[in-house]
């Protein structure tokens, strides 16, 4: 099914690229999102089932996947009106839609993968596809935003990759490491805590740009500002999710070990700094979209804080994420 979905994705993307008729183009995207909802449902039926060695839909991933497919559907519909209103050219629309399909698929991949490396690869995929989506307006500011976004994302993603490598250093002592979440979680207790700490630090920093929290929030804000509003909404909802999920996967994998308290402290520092800086900018900024972007940064900080608070915090974080998305989507689209 995964393979089928991947093939459908590629075909849909290709069709969207080559069919230059706008209405058909939108139709393809909407059909694809419907497909992805169906796929989502299929995965729900096969919950916690390892597929292709590296894919495993667990509860958390499925919730986020559901958010992606539903928001993806609405965003597609909204983009249609957006494009009509702005009188976009056929070429712009088809490129956008083609990449949009890939973007959604990459996001779905992030949520479904059961392997740190694969997840990393999918996140990088969202950067690349996201870049094209941001560069929708093809003007100077969009170019600046996209350059910064891609560049900083690339650097950050290498930092995250370094984090994964550090994890593998930590895992050297234990045998049989295949970078699956579950096996890491099972073995984490035997690993060297120092390396785990370093690894977590790099991963948090590396994925912070996706989640839009301190220290690498800047380009994320610019990207949300310069991309078309449906995409901005998607960035501050599902992409934030993907970043959060990436951080949370590592957090969950390490949480059984002695470094849990340390991780909480780091998360609190990050969360508080995010809230502080976003609040500072919220006061200063006048641009509506940037305000929303900063507010979603603030929420991301809150989510990290909630995670750091422990047990009840997880639920709070999850609820917060879900509610935040709907609201944010509504605001951005408005």
């Amino acid at each position: 099914m995964i393979v089928l979905f991947a093939i459908v994705t590629l075909i849909a993307s290709g069709l969207a690229f080559f069919v230059r008729k706008q209405e058909i183009n939108h139709g393809i995207v909407i059909l694809f999102t419907l497909c992805s909802i169906a796929f989502n449902f299929y995965e729900y039926l096969h919950i916690d089932e390892v597929q292709l060695n590296m894919i495993k839909p667990d509860a958390l991933g499925l919730i986020f996947l559901a958010i992606i497919s539903v928001l993806g559907f609405f965003t597609a519909i909204h983009y249609r009106t957006y494009a009509n209103k702005k009188k976009e050219t056929d070429r712009t629309v088809s490129i956008h839609n083609s990449v949009y399909i890939l973007f959604l698929a990459a996001l779905a991949g992030v949520n479904l993968s059961n392997n740190f490396g694969l997840m990393w690869a999918f996140i990088e995929g969202t950067t690349l596809t996201g870049a094209v989506l941001i560069y929708h307006d093809r003007d100077k500011l969009a170019l600046e935003a996209v350059w910064k976004y891609v560049f900083v994302c690339s650097v950050s993603i290498t930092l995250a990759f370094a984090g994964i490598l550090f994890l593998s250093v930590a895992a050297q002592g234990t045998n049989s490491v295949d970078f699956q979440f579950d096996s890491i979680r099972a073995l984490a207790e035997q690993m060297n805590p120092t390396w785990l700490k370093v690894s977590f630090l790099f991963i948090l920093t590396g994925f912070s740009v996706k989640m839009g929290v301190f220290p690498m929030f800047n380009v994320d804000i610019d990207a949300k500002d310069m991309s078309p509003s449906p995409i901005g909404a998607l960035f501050s909802s599902v992409l934030l999710n993907a970043g959060f999920l990436a951080i949370f996967r590592f957090y969950a994998a390490f949480s059984g070990t002695s470094i849990q308290g340390w991780m909480h402290n780091v998360l609190i520092i990050t969360g508080v700094l995010s809230i502080l800086f976003s609040a500072a900018y919220l006061i200063r900024v006048k641009n509506y979209k940037r305000i929303l972007a900063y507010s979603s940064m603030e929420h991301a900080g809150l989510i990290l804080l909630a995670v750091a608070m422990g047990k009840a915090g997880y639920v709070a974080a999850l609820l917060h994420i879900i509610f935040h998305h709907w609201l944010n989507q509504a605001f951005f689209i408005k």
Partner: peptide, 23 residues
Amino acid sequence: MERFAVLHTGKVQHYLIYPLVFI
């Protein structure tokens, strides 16, 4: 708060110092 709002300088060079310093 205004004093805190200094990070978003618009320069990529700065944006990359933050993670380094943070780490």
